[in-house]
Amino acid sequence: MSSALFLAGTLVVALNAYVVLGGADFGGGVWDLLARGPRKEAQRQLIAQAIGPVWEANHVWLILAIVLLFTCFPAAFARIVVPLNLPLTGVLIGIVLRGSAFAFRGYGGDRDAVQRRWGRVFAVASLVTPLLLGTALGAVASGAVGAAAAGTAASFGVRYVRPWLAPFPLSVGVVTLACFAFLAATYLTLEGPAGALRDDFRRRAIASGIAVAAAALAALVTAAPSAPLMWHGLIGSWWAVSFQLLTGVTAIVALAALVRRRYALARLAAIVQVSLVLWGWAWSQYPYVVPPDLTIAAAAAPAATQQLVIAALVLGALVLVPSLFYLFRVFKGSDRLSTISHP
């Protein structure tokens, strides 16, 4: 394996970690927005408690992915950001509002009006950001971003809007949102005490699991006309088809486990399922970073940079892995029902 391919793989690993960790934090916001019924406040509290200690660390995975992208594949970064300027700006606004609203709600005082105001900002931003982020990824995968950078004489709409405002990218946005909500609900079944609250999230997990399946199907259908490259990558070979089938199997396992209240199994299956969706996408656009023409090899930084980044990744992992393990053991470990003291 070439070092450029290794770095591209690491980039997907970072994105994967962001999706299953940071994505669930966004999903938590979605469930905050949709909190209903007699246990509305308890649901919101559980969500806030689950996100509080870890969201900043989870968020860094996105930064790592961006930094790896512009360090190791500078040509790809420069090409992606131009046509996707608008949705990415939207993502940024969403990230800023979500993060600060979450902190403001936590520390802003206990008056109900304040709580509700920041809660609303936090929740709406959690809904919009994954949609836009998924749309941006879908636009890259569809090949429209790569094609847009080529023609420079075209109008504003053609260069900066049409690459992403199309059926396939938007349906990827919906898949992303559904996946984040599904992950969050599944994790939340294990965050609180057994009982009615847990059942609330079990029902939400099942519903959003079905939504993931429906959205994925819709994305596949729109891929055929509007993202032919992607369509070919997704089902164009026997191994690609078996990959999609495997993803489908884990989806069924996750839903079945939820129905039978095997929560730990459901969480594992959900993580595997969403990761498979992501890797399926990455695999289908191999060997391109920016389809239809910018390959991993062509976009890669010089060898000296690649080697140093790999060295930094190894050293960084030596610090990072034990630290992350420690963080999750402290806050997501076995005695999880003891209070997490809010400073």
Partner: peptide, 11 residues
Amino acid sequence: AGAIIGMPFSL
């Protein structure tokens, strides 16, 4: 500049 000064950003 990405390939040249990406290193400190990665660190």
